[in-house]
Amino acid sequence: MTRQNISSGSAWEPVLGYSRAVKVGPYVHVSGTTASTPDGVVGLGDPYEQTKAALKTIAQALTEAGAQLSDVVRTRLYVTDISRWEEIGKAHGEVFGEIRPAMAIVEVSQLISPELLVEIGADAYIGE
């Protein structure tokens, strides 16, 4: 099977040695994705906006891999404040409401940068 590494251009990718997404066969695995952009963090202090921004980056990586959001079968959300799950869940639901992938939402003590509130990973299957 052919392997395709997909970069979003994040400064973290070469430093940490990872790809935004990796496609092997019909599977696409998207790394943990935050609201960090080349212009800074989107939605400072706002987990809803950060979730939307992370999902936008995930959608772009999927497109580059030849997939789409409707191919996503699992998402994993890491959040720094689980009490704000409704805001985060609302943004996730706006994107995945009809798709309904398997999902986990887990509180963590912090992400790689203090202004980041949400990190999302996704797995997609392009098949049949």
Rank of each mutant, 00 (worst) to 15 (best):
residue 78 Y to L: 15
residue 46 D to P: 05
residue 3 R to H: 10
residue 109 S to C: 04
residue 18 Y to M: 10
residue 41 V to E: 14
residue 111 L to F: 06
residue 51 T to D: 02
residue 42 V to R: 05
residue 39 D to H: 03
residue 2 T to R: 13
residue 21 A to Q: 09
residue 58 I to K: 00
residue 1 M to L: 08
residue 93 G to K: 09
residue 63 T to K: 11
residue 68 Q to I: 04
residue 22 V to G: 10
residue 63 T to E: 13
residue 30 V to F: 04
residue 93 G to Q: 05
residue 71 D to I: 02
residue 74 R to Q: 12
residue 60 Q to G: 06
residue 88 I to G: 01
residue 119 E to C: 15
residue 63 T to G: 08
residue 40 G to M: 02
residue 100 R to F: 12
residue 11 A to L: 13
residue 95 V to G: 06
residue 4 Q to K: 10
residue 30 V to C: 03
residue 32 G to C: 07
residue 23 K to D: 02
residue 6 I to E: 03
residue 54 A to C: 02
residue 68 Q to F: 01
residue 8 S to M: 09
residue 71 D to F: 00
residue 73 V to Q: 12
residue 112 I to H: 14
residue 38 P to I: 14
residue 124 A to E: 00
residue 74 R to N: 15
residue 84 R to G: 06
residue 49 E to A: 13
residue 84 R to L: 10
residue 41 V to W: 01
residue 13 E to R: 08
residue 26 P to D: 15
residue 92 H to R: 14
residue 38 P to C: 00
residue 95 V to Y: 11
residue 39 D to Q: 08
residue 83 S to Q: 11
residue 115 E to G: 05
residue 88 I to M: 09
residue 43 G to S: 05
residue 66 G to I: 10
residue 104 A to W: 15
residue 29 H to W: 14
residue 93 G to P: 04
residue 20 R to H: 11
residue 64 E to D: 07
residue 83 S to A: 03
residue 41 V to D: 10
residue 28 V to R: 08
residue 96 F to D: 06
residue 7 S to L: 11
residue 4 Q to T: 09
residue 108 V to Y: 05
residue 103 M to R: 06
residue 47 P to Q: 01
residue 95 V to C: 09
residue 103 M to F: 03
residue 27 Y to E: 15
residue 79 V to E: 04
residue 68 Q to C: 07
residue 80 T to H: 01
residue 105 I to M: 15
residue 31 S to Y: 00
residue 5 N to Y: 08
residue 80 T to V: 08
residue 8 S to P: 00
residue 77 L to D: 05
residue 94 E to S: 02
residue 102 A to L: 13
residue 68 Q to P: 00
residue 31 S to H: 10
residue 33 T to N: 00
residue 15 V to C: 01
residue 88 I to S: 04
residue 25 G to V: 05
residue 27 Y to L: 13
residue 32 G to I: 12
residue 94 E to H: 04
residue 128 E to A: 14
residue 107 E to D: 03
residue 87 E to R: 11
residue 83 S to L: 01
residue 75 T to F: 06
residue 119 E to P: 01
residue 125 Y to L: 15
residue 59 A to I: 11
residue 59 A to V: 04
residue 81 D to E: 01
residue 20 R to I: 05
residue 123 D to F: 08
residue 82 I to H: 09
residue 53 A to K: 04
residue 28 V to M: 08
residue 47 P to H: 01
residue 53 A to P: 00
residue 30 V to K: 04
residue 127 G to Y: 06
residue 41 V to I: 14
residue 44 L to T: 01
residue 88 I to L: 00
